[in-house]
C-alpha cells in the first residue's frame, strides 16, 4: 500500500484577477520522486511555495502525512521544518560558513545542543560530498557546491518531503551534473521528492512520475515512459521533446 506523504486538493492561487493555477490535485507517495514540468509562467514555483506555506493559496487544502496543514490555526513554522526546500538561486545564508548554514536550523529551530547540531550538520555535508568545504563561505564556493550545501541544509531537518524549485537552472552547464547526481542518490535512498525542473534526463531516468502543468492546470500526470512515448495529449509529447532538445542533450545521449 503506498503511503501518501503529500496530498493537494483543489489548490487555487490567484493575484487579483490573474489566476496562477487552479484546482490542482495531486498525491505524492512516500519514496516517490515526482517531476513537475511545464512552460515558464505556469505557476510551478508558486505551487511549491504554496505547498510549504511560504505563499498563501486562495483556496484548496494540503495534507502532509495525513495532517491538514492548511487548516486555520496550524503552526506554519512547524510545518516548514518537515518540508525541505531548495531554491533556484541557492539562497545560502551569506554570513555563515557551509557548516553553519546546515547547522543553524538544527541549533536555532530544533534547539539541538551545539555538538549534536555540529555532528549532524557535518554528516549532511558528507552526504552531499562537501565535508572538505565545511568552513568555506558561500562566496568561496562554486554554484554547484552552493546548491549542494543548500540541499544539505534542507536535509538536516529530516524533512518528510523535499521540494526542489528548478535547482539547476542558475548553474553553469558543467556544474549541473554534480547537483543532479546528489538528487539522484537521494531519490534512490528513498527520499520523497517533488522537483520542478527542465532537466529531462533526470525526469526520465530518476522520476517515478511526471506532472505536466500548463496554463495553471495539470494536463497530464503519469510515469515518464508514458509521457514521453504514449501521452494522452500530443501537446505533452511536443513539450517534452522540445525541452529535451533545449536542455537535455547531454543526458539524452547517455
Amino acid at each position: 500500500m503506498p503511503n501518501p506523504i503529500l496530498v493537494v486538493k483543489d489548490l487555487t492561487k490567484k493575484y487579483g484577477d490573474h489566476i496562477v493555477f487552479h484546482d490542482i490535485n495531486m498525491t505524492i507517495n512516500e519514496g516517490d520522486t515526482v517531476v513537475i514540468i511545464g512552460p515558464s509562467g505556469t505557476g510551478k514555483s508558486t505551487l511549491l511555495r504554496c505547498i510549504n506555506l511560504l505563499t498563501k493559496a486562495n483556496s484548496g487544502q494540503i495534507w502532509l502525512d495525513g495532517e491538514e496543514i492548511t487548516a486555520p490555526g496550524h503552526d506554519e513554522d512547524e510545518v516548514r521544518q518537515h518540508i525541505g526546500m531548495v531554491f533556484q538561486n541557492f539562497l545560502l545564508f551569506n554570513h555563515l560558513t557551509a557548516l553553519d548554514n546546515v547547522k543553524i536550523g538544527l541549533s536555532k529551530v530544533k534547539k539541538l545542543k551545539d555538538d549534536q547540531a555540529e555532528a549532524k550538520a557535518m554528516q549532511e555535508l558528507e552526504r552531499v560530498g562537501l565535508a572538505d568545504r565545511a568552513h568555506h563561505y558561500p562566496g568561496q564556493l562554486s554554484g554547484g557546491q552552493q546548491q549542494r550545501v543548500a540541499i544539505a541544509r534542507a536535509l538536516a531537518m529530516d524533512p518528510r518531503i523535499m521540494l526542489f524549485d528548478e535547482p539547476t537552472s542558475a548553474l553553469d552547464p558543467e556544474l549541473i551534473g554534480e547537483v543532479l547526481e546528489v538528487m539522484g542518490k537521494l531519490s534512490k535512498d528513498g527520499m520523497t521528492m517533488l522537483v520542478v525542473t527542465h532537466e529531462m534526463g533526470f525526469a526520465r531516468e530518476v522520476s517515478d512520475r511526471i506532472i505536466f502543468l500548463e496554463k495553471g492546470s495539470i494536463v497530464e500526470d503519469g510515469p515518464p515512459e508514458v509521457l514521453f512515448y504514449t501521452p494522452k495529449f500530443e501537446r505533452t509529447r511536443e513539450f517534452l521533446w522540445k525541452i529535451t532538445e533545449l536542455y537535455g542533450k547531454k543526458e539524452s545521449d547517455s
Partner: peptide, 10 residues
C-alpha cells in the same frame, strides 16, 4: 534570505 530562513522553519 528571509524566505530561505522561513523555509527551514524559522
Amino acid at each position: 534570505q528571509m524566505m530561505a530562513a522561513r523555509a527551514v522553519g524559522m
